[in-house]
């Protein structure tokens, strides 16, 4: 088992390397597995994290990223694609109220905005990797508020700016069914991996 310091620094490296969507995820996982194995053996022999990865782990990670093969556009789409239905489906939970209105333009803008936010968040979090805990805490707090404000702003303004039609309105049974299916899909995507592990 890695000690606390090694584990947390390795996790930082993991996030930093894997948040570069331009590199192959399979190869990135492979090299991270090797680095973990190396660090574990080094730790057992009484060596420090710095002896293995140097004083500046960020620059070490950059060297690794430079040598990792680039990912194909198809692979990038495969990573992002599952997020799209999830982003939409939690909005369909509103169907539990008995009436669900799905407005085309509002949903398109919402999707584009969410994906853009997602991308910006990753870039900011990546830039903040390897900073001290205190900075990270304030950064998370700031980012959380920022995301919240963007969404609140969007929902307040979208009704006024964007045309309401074309839109799909579902009542009673149809609305409940849509909401239930959405809930199942969301829960499965969140906890499905746990179920698979138990089996």
């Amino acid at each position: 088992m890695l000690n606390e310091k090694n584990k947390s620094l390795l996790n930082e490296m993991r996030f930093y390397i894997q948040s570069h969507f331009s590199v192959s995820d399979t190869k990135a996982s492979e090299i991270l597995m090797e680095l973990e194995d190396h660090l574990l053996t080094a730790q057992q022999e009484g060596k420090s994290f710095e002896q293995v990865f140097g004083q500046d782990p960020k620059s070490f990670c950059n060297e690794i990223i430079q040598e990792l093969p680039a990912t194909s556009k198809w692979e990038q789409i495969k990573i992002i694609a599952p997020i799209v239905p999830l982003l939409l489906m939690w909005r369909f939970l509103y169907g539990f109220s008995g009436e669900l209105t799905i407005s085309l333009y509002e949903n398109i803008v919402y999707l584009v905005l969410s994906l853009a936010l997602f991308y910006v968040l990753f870039i900011i979090l990546r830039a903040g990797s390897f900073s001290s805990k205190r900075n990270s805490f304030w950064m998370m707090y700031g980012l959380g508020t920022f995301v919240l404000l963007v969404y609140v702003g969007f929902f307040l303004l979208s009704g006024r700016i964007l045309p309401a039609s074309p839109s799909l309105v579902l009542h009673d049974g149809a609305a409940y069914m849509t909401a239930i299916v959405s809930l199942v899909v969301i829960l499965y995507s969140l906890f499905g991996s746990l179920l698979n592990k138990k089996r």
Binding site: I31, E34, L35, K47, Q51, V52, F53
Partner: peptide, 16 residues
């Protein structure tokens, strides 16, 4: 080695 991990970028390149 200034840092032991230096061999990994090289291994990646050789494999590529």
């Amino acid at each position: 080695f200034a840092r032991e991990g230096s061999i990994y970028p090289l291994l990646l390149r050789l494999e590529k």
